[in-house]
């Protein structure tokens, strides 16, 4: 049994320390996925916290049918989608702040790093403009590196459906990136 499966089994049995270990191990990845879906750091944090609350409440029903990573990707994707629905009723994205958010460490020379940072920010803005039904499979496939089969398992849809959504997402993304030369 993998370490994650052992922790999930212990947490499902009511062991709070095992659950805390899962939170420590997987929160960085959960945040990364949420951020790429909601494109706002505060909303991503909120989605991560909601995801872990949902995970704790749903754990007793976890039977090990899905791999722990798949299950957690599903939980955080759903929480991020819920956050997107909430945000439409509340606050808009702060684009300036988000551009800085993506400008993380770059070992390149300053001019090239600036150019790349602008491109990266443009990509994230373009991803944020995709329909959620395209955005989530695209993030899981192209940004998290999951296989089509793994994305299908996370989203609980067929592999052909995932292939179709990712294809449409790539097409829409490339169209939105027309300004990138």
């Amino acid at each position: 049994m993998s370490a994650d499966r052992a922790l999930m089994a212990a947490a499902a049995g009511g062991d709070p320390q095992a659950f805390d270990s899962l939170v420590r191990l997987h929160t960085p990845r959960m945040y990364r996925v949420a951020l790429r879906i909601v494109a706002d750091s505060a909303d991503a944090e909120d989605a991560v916290q909601d995801a872990w609350i949902s995970a704790w409440r749903a754990l007793r029903g976890y039977r090990g049918d899905a791999a722990p990573a798949t299950w957690l990707y599903r939980v955080v994707s759903n929480a991020a989608l819920a956050q997107l629905r909430r945000r439409h009723a509340t606050v808009p994205i702060d684009e300036g702040a988000e551009e800085r958010l993506w400008n993380v460490d770059d070992p390149d020379v300053p001019e090239r790093a600036t150019l790349r940072a602008e491109e990266v920010a443009a990509v994230h803005r373009a991803v944020a403009g995709l329909e959620p039904s395209q955005r989530v499979p695209l993030v899981l496939r192209e940004f998290e590196g999951l296989s089509y089969e793994e994305v299908a398992a996370v989203l609980e849809v067929s592999v052909p459906a995932v292939r179709s959504r990712v294809h449409r997402a790539r097409q829409a993304l490339l169209t939105r990136l027309e300004g990138v030369r």
């Binding site: 929160t27 990364r32 790349r116 990509v123 994230h124 590196g145």
Partner: peptide, 12 residues
């Protein structure tokens, strides 16, 4: 550019 974005480390 999408590949570059995907390869960027996201700071927690």
């Amino acid at each position: 550019a999408v590949r570059s974005a995907a390869n960027r480390r996201v700071r927690t």
